[in-house]
Each structure stands twice: as structure tokens, then as C-alpha cells.
Write a protein that binds this DNA or RNA. Structure first.
Lengths: 118, 118
DNA sequence: CAGGATCCAAAAGGATACTG
DNA sequence: CAGTATCCTTTTGGATCCTG
């Protein structure tokens, strides 16, 4: 199982916060974002978890980390790679299914849900 | 977060065995399948886990359970609902992304992987 | 056959404090 | 600022045995 394409991708999706992070990065035309900026937006995420997730996503090739050492202190930023941007399509299909089949009223239970504005 | 359409759907996908079960049910033109039949196909799944997963999927409306009490002993069978069948589309989009971005050689690491024959 | 009940091990992730 | 380290709680799911 562990080598299966589908399960590998599921492993990425399934972890807590991963989707939040991808969506957060996707916002604003995928402009580069900083660690504490992400942390602030994601509110209750702990630095440890954010750190772990970002590293995983980097390894998986969905997120890239950029260093700008022309400035002092050095600035680290995160953004989606091409593959990360394409990944949003999966989220779209999840959203499509969810809206069609999961809720009678066709809207997300969260008022003003940023994910549903995809 | 917990009320968000997307996260609710992720919760379904993310649990171990869930996708396997959906794919197993999807096979053979979604014909009805019995508990022990599924268990046998899924090989290393424990009855507890299969039971729990099937119940979750039933609650989520992706799987329906049918009783045929015209026979003795009563026969219980499981199959995908309409929403469950539509869910396969999400798996398709996961597969598409996985094959395109996750592996250089464009094939699943598993020889003869039943999921990749979707 | 189709599960339910119980117990247990491993993993995941939160809280908090600390550092280059 | 951008994390790392440590500790600890919660969750998950496997193993096993039992039952209508």
C-alpha cells in the first residue's frame, strides 16, 4: 500500500493543518509568505506543527522555501511550487463533492469560510 | 474548522482503510459485497476496523447496507450509494495529480496496483 | 457469518519553554 | 524572527477473544 500513488497523496492530504497551510499559501496569487505570517493566519497552530508540516511539504515538493540574504536579518519565505499549485485542483474536487453531497443546504457550515471561497 | 465542507471530506478520506474500502466496493460495477468478502480482499484489515469504517461510511452516506431476510441466515451486503460512486471522482483527481507530480516515472510503485487501474 | 468488547502500543500533535 | 526541544495528552488502530 505504502508505495501506491494514491495512498501517498492521501498521506499528504490527511495530516492535520496541511490543507490549511496549502490554502493559506495559495491566497493572494501565491505570493511568498513568512513563517510567522502563516502562524498568525492559522491562529491556533503551534510553531512545532507548522514547522513539521512545512518541512514535509517541502520534501514532497509542494512548497518551496526561499532565502533572501541580501537583507539583514535574512528573510525566509514560503510559497507553492508548480506542483503545489496544481494540488489545489484536488481541493477543488473535494469541495465540489462536498458541496454537492455532504450538505443539504449546499453551503459550508462556517460563516465566511475562507476555504469555500476557493 | 470542523464544520468546513472541505475538512469534513478530508476527515473521511484521511482515515486508514477508507479509500481501500471504497475502491473495493467500487469494483465489479459496484455490486453488493459481504463483510467477510471485503475482509478477505483487504487481507490485513481487522474486523473491528472494517466494522468501524463501514459504519462511518454509512453515516456519511457513502455506503449503504442492505439486508436480505428472504434467506436464512439473513444476508448483509454493502455497496456504494450514489454519493459514494461520485466520490470516486475525487480519487481520480488524486490519482491524476499523483501520477503527474509525485513520481518521475509516472507509474505507481506497486506492481499490479489495483488502485491505479481505476 | 458478522460483527462487538476489551486491552494495548504506537503515533500524532498540542503546550510550553528555549535558542541562534 | 524562525524555528527547536521536551514533555505530555489524545487519538488511532491493531490483537485478541467473545457472541447472537
Amino acid at each position: 500500500m505504502k508505495d501506491c500513488t494514491i495512498y501517498k497523496t492521501i498521506d499528504i492530504i490527511g495530516k492535520r493543518w496541511t490543507l490549511c497551510i496549502l490554502l493559506e499559501l495559495y491566497k493572494g496569487n501565491n505570493e511568498e509568505k513568512r513563517f510567522n505570517e502563516l502562524k498568525k493566519k492559522l491562529q491556533t497552530i503551534t510553531p512545532k506543527t507548522l514547522s513539521v508540516r512545512l518541512k514535509e511539504l517541502e520534501q514532497e515538493g509542494l512548497v518551496k522555501k526561499t532565502l533572501d540574504d541580501s537583507k539583514d536579518p535574512v528573510i525566509h519565505t514560503y510559497s507553492l511550487t508548480r506542483s503545489g499549485e496544481e494540488f489545489i485542483q484536488i481541493i477543488q474536487s473535494i469541495k465540489k463533492w462536498g458541496l454537492e453531497w455532504k450538505f443539504e443546504n449546499k453551503i459550508c457550515g462556517l460563516s465566511n469560510c475562507k476555504n469555500c471561497k476557493l
